[in-house]
């Protein structure tokens, strides 16, 4: 089911300045929010901090309280084989179906490697990945 596999990523608008990441991370710490996956995208003097957290609502509240611009973005998380070629298999599944990846980041944990994907058409992507024998992690794994 695609809906179960839609994961709420928290996106924070941040200027590229010393101390910004520390300030965001501190707010999450104080809210008792654990970060499961994380990346920073940087443009011209500003960036977006993206994270998958265990308590998105609390993260949203804490960061907004500090004046941050925060938004939720829906992403999907795909289980990868933690070996050479693991990423290729997923990327090839999507590329073969002409599904574009807007951005991605990944982590490799105890239970295996996970690829976080932002795609144009998540329902198609989920279907294609499952048809290819790979697993989209349900949001309950994180949140």
């Amino acid at each position: 089911m695609p809906a179960e596999c839609m994961i709420r990523q928290i996106s924070v608008f941040s200027e590229n300045k010393p101390g910004k990441l520390a300030s965001i991370a501190k707010a999450l710490q104080e809210g008792g929010v654990n970060i499961l996956a994380f990346s920073i995208a940087e443009a011209d003097g500003f960036g977006v901090v993206r994270a998958i957290v265990n308590k998105p609502e609390i993260a949203y509240r804490e960061l907004t309280r500090l004046g941050y611009n925060v938004a939720f973005t829906e992403v999907i998380a795909v289980g990868m084989e933690d070996r050479p070629g693991g990423l290729y298999e997923i990327a090839d599944l999507l590329g073969g179906a002409s599904l574009n990846i807007e951005y991605a980041y990944a982590y490799s944990g105890k239970e295996g490697a996970v690829l976080i994907l932002r795609v144009d058409n998540p329902a198609d992507a989920i279907a294609r990945i499952q048809a290819g024998g790979r697993r989209c992690l349900p949001s309950s794994v994180f949140q």
Binding site: Q9, S11, F13, A41, A43, D44, F46, G47, V48, R50, N69, V70, A71, F72, T73, E102, Y103
Partner: peptide, 18 residues
Amino acid sequence: ELSRTHFSGELADLARIQ
């Protein structure tokens, strides 16, 4: 300043606004 109500969460949208 970016408007509070106009942050989609996407870097590409920010670049568009810029």
